[in-house]
Each structure stands twice: as C-alpha cells, then as structure tokens.
Design a protein around this nucleic acid. Sequence first.
DNA 1: TAGATTGTTAATCGATTAACAATC
DNA 2: TAGATTGTTAATCGATTAACAATC
Lengths: 205, 205
Amino acid sequence: MQQKIIPDIVIGRLPLYYRALQRMSSKGHTVTSSQELADTLGISAAQIRKDLSQFGEFGKQGTGYNVEYLADQLKKILKIDHVWDMVIVGAGDVGSALARYQGFQDRSLRVKMIFDSDPLKIGKELGNFIVKDISTLIDEIKKEGIKIAIIAVPENEAQEVTDTLIKAGIKAILNYAPIHIAVPPEIRLQCIDPALHLQRMTYYL
Amino acid sequence: MQQKIIPDIVIGRLPLYYRALQRMSSKGHTVTSSQELADTLGISAAQIRKDLSQFGEFGKQGTGYNVEYLADQLKKILKIDHVWDMVIVGAGDVGSALARYQGFQDRSLRVKMIFDSDPLKIGKELGNFIVKDISTLIDEIKKEGIKIAIIAVPENEAQEVTDTLIKAGIKAILNYAPIHIAVPPEIRLQCIDPALHLQRMTYYL
DNA sequence: TAGATTGTTAATCGATTAACAATC
DNA sequence: TAGATTGTTAATCGATTAACAATC
C-alpha cells in the first residue's frame, strides 16, 4: 500500500496551525473555522482546508472545527503526541539560552543534555543541567536513544559536530551555526540564522 | 519608470548567496561558479543564475563569478553596504544572547540598544549595553532613527510591543515570541520559533 | 582553438486560489 | 428550514528546471 506523499511545505504549516489551536484552547475557545484560523495566521482559508484535507476530514460543514479535536489530530500527525528528548551541543550564549528556554514545554519537546568541548564549561551548572564533555556525546546519545539535536557551536566546528551527531544516531538537527552544513538525505535539517532573516528585510527598507 | 518586482522568495535566497560568498572570500577563493555555489548551498545552479539575473549580469561565460565583485553587488542589492542599527526588546535569556551575539558583526548589523520593562533588569549591564526602560523606547528609537527591531519578550506582550515599535518608526521586525503578531502591510516581519522548526521535523521521524 | 560557464527562454512542475456541491 | 462552512475540484498562478546559444 503506497502511502500518499505530503508536500513538505504542507508539513511546515501544520505546527503553525497547531500553535494557533493551542492558543485558542488556552483562551477557552472550543470551536474555530478555517476562516478564523486564516485571519489569525495570515494564510488563506482555502489553503488551510486543503492542507488539513490531506490527512482526513476533521471539520463539520456549517460548524467548523472542534479546537481540541483538531489539535489532537495534528499532534498525532506531527508525532508530537509524546515528548521528544533533545540534546544541545555548545554551551555558549545561544546554547545556554536554549537550555533555559521555557518555550519547549507544552510543545512536546524537552532538552535532556547539553555538551561542550571547553574544559572551563564542562561540569558547570546550566539551568537544570550539568554541561557534559563532548567526547562522551556518542555514548550518551546512544544510551538514551535521542533522535533530535540542536547545534549551537561556532561555525568552524558545526560540520564536525554534525558528523558526530549522525554517528550517534541523531535523525533531526536544528542548526544555529551560521553556515550551511551537509547531511545525508535521510537526516532532517533546519537552520536558524537571525542575520539571514534580517538581511532579507533590509532589501525593502 | 516601473521598477521590476522581484519575488520575495528570490530576495530570501540572496542573503544565503552572500553568506556563502563571504565564506569563500575568507578562505581566499577569488572566483566561483553557479555550480560551486549550488553544491555548497544545496540549491540548483540554474536557480542561482536565474535569481542573480534578475538584478544584472555579474558573471563571465566560461569563467564564472568574481567572489568579491558578486559579494559587493549583493551587498548593494540587499542594502547591507552600510551598517544597520537595531534595538532588542526584552532582556531575558533570548534577548541577552542576542545582545552578546557575535554573528551580527561582519554582516552589516549592529545591536544599538536593549530594552526591558522589568525594574530589576533596567539599568543592569548586559554585554556592552545598559538595559533601558521600555517606557523610553519610542523616544530613543526616534532619536536614533532606528528602523530594525528584535522582539524577545513573552508572547503575551509581543503584540503590544510590536504596536509601540511601529509607532516609534520601526519598519522591520524579527520576532522571537512564539506567536503570530499582526503588522500593517508596509512593515516587514520575520519570525523565529525553534519549536516550530523542530515540530516540522518530528513528522518524519 | 576547445572547454567551460553564463544569461535566458521555453517547458515543466508544483502550489495556491476560487468556486461550489454537499451537508451540518 | 436557512445560513454557514467544509472538503474537493478545476483553474490559475508562480516557481523551478532543462537546455542551449552566446561568449569568455
């Protein structure tokens, strides 16, 4: 049985929908519509309905969507109906901010360990963690079976760290180093580089 | 004279090209080709040539592109041939990490001031800055004529801060609060939400 | 010159939107 | 029932790719 391939651009919008639904839920809203979601997200209602319809029928004509139900379905689709443990590599400013970040709670994500190569940082307390020696990275990740990593090391170390993470069994990487890193096709990769976002806007100023 | 409208998706790739060229330049490479750029960026060579051709002819047949020259042209196109001052709003972990971030140097971006509303934070040192009172935000931004802001406040304050920034004359916003904020169409907006990127990858795990 | 690579066109591919029957 | 809103189809729109003449 051939599974339908969903465009990645659709997958990329689902977390956006989920975030909006979580917010509606926390405000006590019980039902919504593609139009209301469209208004709060700046996406067209038709697109939202089309995206959702790739996965099933979650709404009722005339009524719209039940917020809790749709959020629950999206959780299952995105596989965030359970918590994912993550490791952070790099305990500099960015890694430290991420280790203490409150925004992963309630979103099925949890930092489990943080690593650095700097002897001055190893063993130090950081948020609820003790910074671990990067030389133990492969063993620790394998032991816990962790699949997601966040890279927050200087750009000249990013590729080497990436290769090590993949050896350890990491399947998804969020890269904060401002450099393009190469990964095999089966590894998921997302990048965050604030300067890139900012330079995209200066064009219009 | 009607100026050609360049698709935003093309503008979004230019900083990527610029980043790669800066890196080549720092490694001492003097010439490159659309194919080499394609290989280092994971974008097709045809697309890179097409994107660049929207703005002029920067290469030579048979030879490729002069790294310095192309980087220079991109700087002008993106308007990053001069440094842009920015303000950060929110001196929590994220704002602090951004205030100390070294990655803005050499990329024509500079943090100029950081604001918070918490009396415990106002007046404190943070990197090279003294955290300013958010109530002075409009005056300070207007005085300096700053156009770019980074929002790093809790999600329940993000929209209010946004509205204030726009009143102060801010034209481009990078939002770290995990919420969709509304802005008028003439204001540029980019958002960074690590959980969104991570939830986009769990689908595939 | 021969080989390489650009800039550009036309073809392809994919994503978005508009519209509406179905139905709650 | 009447009004509202879904799920889906077909049409439109836009982006990517392949290919090649031009030319360094």
